[in-house]
């Protein structure tokens, strides 16, 4: 039984190949709950929190940005990252509490792959790319191919999630989430909407209303046909409502102790309507 605290990705990968059953821990905000609640008894641990390469983000030559898997949410809430990816900043601010945002990371959100993970709808909306690295190869997977289901993803046991590349879009983007109190609340339903004017595209992704994050591609393409996303500045109420209705049709919510399927379906229609109206207010 060991705890490895590597300082570089390659040290971490070495540790992983000598201990293939080791659990990777980043901020700890998901895994420690599993341990504290006796759902997980870890044997070998590789802690990634001291790997500096994972805790930085960079601007790429194509204009996209690459955020290390260990960058805590609090760094996304403000500053340049907020300017570049406003929806991510808004999502980051809804993650747990300030304490959680100081520890929690996109790498952790991706590793856990809960449909209620607050960062994930943003990654789905902007078509983010997940970087995975093993001792043998590095690969990049579209977020759409990465998340497979409730707490299931395409990471191989010998891989580490190292970063996420996020295209910087040209257009309005925002995130919104329903919870039953005004702070520190798990998502009942959430949505991220992002517009890219040059490609005349709108993207909307829903959280907590299906086994994975849901991209509402039918509603997106429908809206594209109704409305010039690059030149319009105002969306009519009826159009926004219809967009919301169509978004809700693509959701697959369930009844559970946090809410009902009926409410969640209703909520995402309202959220979609409001988001598109925020994008095209006047």
């Amino acid at each position: 039984m060991t705890v490895a605290i590597p300082l570089t990705i390659s040290e971490a990968l070495d540790a992983l190949s000598s201990n293939p059953d080791a659990r990777l821990i980043q901020g700890g905000t998901d895994m420690m709950v599993e341990i504290n609640f006796n759902h997980l008894k870890p044997h070998n641990i590789i802690a990634l929190r001291r790997i500096k390469e994972l805790r930085t983000w960079t601007k790429n030559t194509d204009g996209s940005i690459t955020i290390g898997a260990g960058v805590p949410y609090q760094e996304m809430e403000t500053g340049e990252l907020k300017q570049l990816v406003p929806a991510l900043a808004e999502a980051a601010r809804t993650v747990g509490s300030p304490q959680i945002r100081a520890a929690g990371t996109l790498g952790g959100n991706l590793g856990t792959c809960s449909p209620a993970g607050d960062g994930l709808p943003v990654l789905f909306a902007v078509d983010a790319v997940v970087h995975l690295q093993s001792n043998e190869v590095s690969r990049q997977l579209s977020i759409h191919d990465f998340m497979l289901g409730v707490k299931r993803n395409a990471r191989n046991a010998n891989e580490i999630i190292t970063a996420v590349t996020i295209p910087v879009l040209n257009g309005w983007q925002g995130y919104t989430k329903v919870g039953v109190r005004n702070a520190m609340v798990i998502s009942v339903a959430s949505a991220c909407l992002a517009v890219d004017k040059p490609t005349k595209s709108v993207r909307i992704a829903l959280g907590a209303v299906g086994p994975t994050i849901i991209r509402c591609r039918d509603a997106e393409s429908w809206l594209t046909q109704q409305f010039d996303l690059s030149t319009s500045t105002k969306i009519e109420l009826d159009l926004a409502k219809e967009f919301g209705r169509r978004v809700a049709l693509e959701s697959k919510p369930i009844d559970d102790h946090r809410s009902t399927a009926e409410y969640r379906r209703h909520a995402v229609s309202v959220l979609a309507q409001r988001l598109i109206t925020r994008a095209y207010p006047s």
Binding site: T94, Y175, K177, G179, N182, A183, L271, R274, T277
Partner: peptide, 16 residues
């Protein structure tokens, strides 16, 4: 927005 119903989830606009 933190003073609105929904708080940091940014669900509401003022006219809602």
């Amino acid at each position: 927005v933190l003073e609105f119903p929904g708080g940091s989830g940014r669900t509401a606009d003022r006219h809602n």
